[in-house]
Design a protein around this nucleic acid. Sequence first.
DNA 1: AACAGTTGCTTTGTTAACAGTTGATCTTAC
DNA 2: GTAAGATCAACTGTTAACAAAGCAACTGTT
Lengths: 219, 219
Amino acid sequence: MTAESMSLLGLEKTSLRQQALAALRRAITTGELPPGTHLVETELSETLRISRGTLREAMRQLQQEGLISAGARGRLSVRHLDSQEIRNIFAVRAALESLAARELCALADRSEVLAALREAVNEMQRAADSGLEERIEADLEFHRTLCRLTGNATLLHSWQSLEGSIRMSIMFAGVERAVRNMDVQRHSEIVDAIATGDAGLANEVIMSHMEGAATVLVA
Amino acid sequence: MTAESMSLLGLEKTSLRQQALAALRRAITTGELPPGTHLVETELSETLRISRGTLREAMRQLQQEGLISAGARGRLSVRHLDSQEIRNIFAVRAALESLAARELCALADRSEVLAALREAVNEMQRAADSGLEERIEADLEFHRTLCRLTGNATLLHSWQSLEGSIRMSIMFAGVERAVRNMDVQRHSEIVDAIATGDAGLANEVIMSHMEGAATVLVA
DNA sequence: AACAGTTGCTTTGTTAACAGTTGATCTTAC
DNA sequence: GTAAGATCAACTGTTAACAAAGCAACTGTT
């Protein structure tokens, strides 16, 4: 059981820092805090009702995730993405996820992995009739699952470090356009490729999926 | 010119946070703070002569880099790497650097890139007669350069997030063993592969280089 | 009008102190 | 002897206040 899923009762005692982190991440990736916005510590800490010290810790983490960047004199502002940077992000993402696919292909027994992936695809199918928000979450969960199932903690961590940037890319390109990448059929093909156990094929499918996705976003 | 290289005069006014960050990173990657060490904020802040607030900011960053991990109740300790995790790290590293090599192959004019890479190799050659420390630095600088030359900021950032873990791997495996991976000839082959412009070849060379490196470390 | 000096405001860097929680040790009643 | 309870020490979470650095507007002088 992961740490996030054990909310089990109402007793999710998360620190103010974590709450602030989540709130800021959400505000940035939804565009509530548009790119370029200068994040003034005193203002922000007042808005969030936390002290500057606590806020600063959360901001360091966001900075490391690439959601905010430091300007002159330590000033932090919401990162601005251009088309080229989105392509860059998706190139790295493709490299990570194709590694994931190759590692999964190398497993002797892929039955559990395939079951989990198909379940993630089903979740996308269910979300297809829901709002855009849900579709995005289901899509990201699929790809996150791909990385998690490898058991490679470093790979998962690297992917998650990129997740914020991916969400910003979706935001930048426009949600309506982004959901065109969240076709159930195409994700099913990824699972099928892994099912064959052919690492070269799985690699190809992921790379082409990502290239297509990036093209749709920046087109 | 990068921000680090502009020390230009004696006026490198870096914040206490950055100094603490650098000091801790070094202490961990050199083994001065061995894996598993519990990092008590009050002790550490006293040792470094900085306040806990400032220290905590630096620790968040190290946490994100994967050098320290959180245990129960927010306790932070130096991350422990086992052989499997080293293999994992090098698998991700290989994925990133092979992306770098492929991107460099795709450039129309690779003359500047090749010049920079050959210079980095020369630096390794010069360091070969120096201490182990210098050889490690020259090796990492070569690989970092590989990523930097792509112009893909996200790629460089992801690689640098992994750099601490790579240094810990070297430390864990033993420096004497690690330097076996820093052969000038083998790095020259990487540059040669990129010079051909054959992305497939460059990919192969990097992957085999990294697989060999990981094998040497965990053997 | 151009310029140097000054003054005050904004914002980040840094610190010390307070609060709350966990775990260990000691005590005491059965 | 042992289990419930009290007390204490060791930490981390959080906050408010102080310090310093840049920046812009103003002012007086030439």
